[in-house]
Structures are given as structure tokens and as C-alpha cells.
């Protein structure tokens, strides 16, 4: 077995961190290790947490983590923040709310930039979930970037998806019915000490009543006040119930299969893109094609044929 893979399986934090970096940088070294660890994955329950920016996702994750630690469970957290489209840099600040676990050996937190992905996740997120799972984490939480309406990729990776809302969204809830408002396994109205909470709660509940097509399970709507730790135990309880529901209804296998499908597509996409855009033989070619398109000597479709024709022989 690959050296770094065997250390990851033992839960060595430095090796876990390094393998995440290698995977994130599409390093060839990561591929061998990822192949080795796959057999040892699948046990962690993956919780996706999404919601608009400032809805309190990070603080809620902190609260959930504290409860899971009381139960003796080990927790991995992937906290995603946006990468700048201009500089390629990122300010990763989710950790600020989670610093109480900074010296807890049972919690591993990794901050990641989106690096060009648009669905609320980051391209290496499938790898990182597998790595944390293989390292023995019982729970892996994936915090998406602050989302708008259509960043729904989190459902591809999460066993349980939590959509975090805050009071005062009011009418906008109506507008975001499709997209983010469809994906929740559990809705949480956070910051429930704020005014307008009854209205938001009523609107989400009516949405659930209308939209719910599943007769076996109605999507629960909870309220929390993260900063006062209120509603967190109840949320954990609902997550457990959802996990049991998945197992009982065989939806678990269906969802996991979808995750592996998304992961496979992502790996192929990444390797193809790297092949086309990083290989030196195409680099100059693409530049010259863009010039030709700009000068109206060529249309974009013909230009694409020129590149793809070389690959899809």
C-alpha cells in the first residue's frame, strides 16, 4: 500500500492534511493513495450544510460538533469559501467560529476555496470526504459557500442535507422554491430569536406541505438559536432519524450510488480538462484558436472541433 495512504488509515493528521493538499492540487501522487483508501470508506455519515451567507452555518456546525463530541464521535469538517474569480486567491474564514476545537484531537477541520466550481462545493470535495472517512471520522460535515438559489451540488455528496434559513427571508422564500429550497432533508430556521421567525417558519412549513411528494417522510422544519445552543439536540435527533430512514427505505444505497456517479464524472472531467488545458501541446493551440475567434476568422464551435477532434479519434 501507498505510504501516505497507510498513515491516513491510521488517522495521522499530518498525512490526512497532506493528502488533501495533493488531491486539491490534482497531484499524480494523490491518485495512488486515493485508490488505496477507497476500500476503507463508506462508514462516515456525511452531513451537508447549506444556506445563504451569514445564515449561521459555521456556528451551527460548531454547535453540532460539540454535541457529537459529547457522544464520543469523531468529526471531520470541510468548510468551503469562495475563490476570487480575479486573483484566484481566497479568504477562508469559517474556522473563526470553530476555534474551540482547535486543540481537540477528535475534530479535523479543513478550509477550502471553491477554485472555480460553481455549485457551492469545491472540485476536490469528493476526495476530501473519502480521506476524512478513511481516517476514521464518524461524521463528516460539508459546509457549502453561502448560496443563492441554484447551488445544489451538496446533495450529490451528502447523506443528509440541511438547509439553513434565517427569519426575514419573507417573500424571497416564494422565489427560491426551485433549487435550494427543494434539496433539504431537514430545514433549520436559525437565529430564531429574531423577529419574523413565526412568518418564516409558517412559509417553510407550507412549502413543505405543498412540495412534499414523499409519503414516508415529511421534511422536518426546526428552529435553532446557535449562539445560545438552542435546538441543537433536537437537530441531532432529526439527523439520526433521517439516517435511520435512509437505511430502512434503502434510499441510502441509492444516494451513495449517486455520489459515486458524481465523483466518477468529476474525476473524468478533471482529468480531461487537465489533459486539454495543461498539456503543453494544446496550450499554444488554444491561445491561437482564441485569437482566431476574436478576429472572426473562426467560430467557437469549429475551434472546439479542432481540439476535441484530436482527443476523440
Amino acid at each position: 500500500m501507498n505510504d501516505i495512504a497507510s498513515r491516513v488509515l491510521k488517522g495521522d493528521p499530518q498525512s490526512v492534511a497532506r493528502l488533501i493538499t495533493l488531491a486539491e492540487n490534482n497531484s499524480p501522487e494523490a491518485i495512488g493513495a486515493m485508490k488505496d483508501i477507497h476500500l476503507h470508506t463508506g462508514d462516515a455519515h456525511v452531513i451537508g450544510i447549506t444556506g445563504v451567507m451569514g445564515s449561521g452555518k459555521s456556528t451551527l456546525i460548531c454547535e453540532l460538533t460539540r454535541e457529537y463530541r459529547k457522544q464520543g464521535l469523531e468529526v471531520g469538517i470541510i468548510a468551503i469559501d469562495p475563490t476570487s474569480p480575479f486573483s484566484g486567491g481566497a479568504l477562508l474564514g469559517d474556522r473563526i467560529r470553530m476555534m474551540e476545537f482547535a486543540t481537540d484531537n477528535g475534530v479535523f477541520i479543513r478550509s477550502m476555496g471553491t477554485r472555480g466550481m460553481l455549485g457551492g462545493l469545491t472540485t476536490a470535495v469528493y476526495d476530501v470526504v473519502e480521506i476524512l472517512d478513511a481516517a476514521g471520522m464518524d461524521i463528516v460535515m460539508v459546509e457549502t459557500v453561502g448560496v443563492g438559489q441554484a447551488e445544489v451540488d451538496v446533495i450529490k455528496i451528502a447523506d443528509t442535507t440541511i438547509v439553513v434559513l434565517v427569519p426575514g427571508l419573507g417573500d424571497s422564500i416564494q422565489m427560491i422554491k426551485a433549487g435550494v429550497m427543494e434539496i433539504a432533508d431537514i430545514y433549520v430556521v436559525n437565529k430564531a430569536d429574531r423577529s419574523g421567525v413565526e412568518q418564516t417558519l409558517a412559509e417553510v412549513e407550507s412549502l413543505v406541505d405543498i412540495a412534499c411528494t414523499n409519503r414516508d417522510r415529511k421534511t422536518p422544519v426546526l428552529t435553532t438559536i446557535s449562539k445560545e445552543s438552542k435546538g441543537v439536540v433536537e437537530l441531532i435527533d432529526e439527523i439520526d432519524k433521517h439516517k435511520k430512514y435512509l437505511k430502512k427505505s434503502k434510499m441510502f444505497e441509492v444516494q451513495r450510488r449517486k455520489r459515486y456517479e458524481a465523483e466518477l464524472v468529476e474525476i473524468i472531467r478533471k482529468r480531461l480538462m487537465n489533459f486539454i488545458f495543461d498539456e503543453s501541446k494544446f496550450k499554444g493551440k488554444i491561445e491561437s484558436l482564441i485569437d482566431q475567434i476574436s478576429n472572426k476568422e473562426l467560430d467557437p464551435y469549429t475551434a472546439a472541433d479542432e481540439i476535441l477532434g484530436k482527443i476523440l479519434r
Binding site: S84, R95, A102
Partner: peptide
């Protein structure tokens, strides 16, 4: 960040550990 780096910020009052 503007120079293209990924910056993790931890906030205040950190111990060396």
C-alpha cells in the same frame, strides 16, 4: 488573497498550540 493566495484566518486570542 488579492495576490492569489488561499488565506485561512483564525481570529483573535490564539495559543501557540
Amino acid at each position: 488573497r488579492d495576490a492569489g493566495m488561499e488565506v485561512v484566518y483564525t481570529g483573535l486570542h490564539q495559543t501557540a498550540e
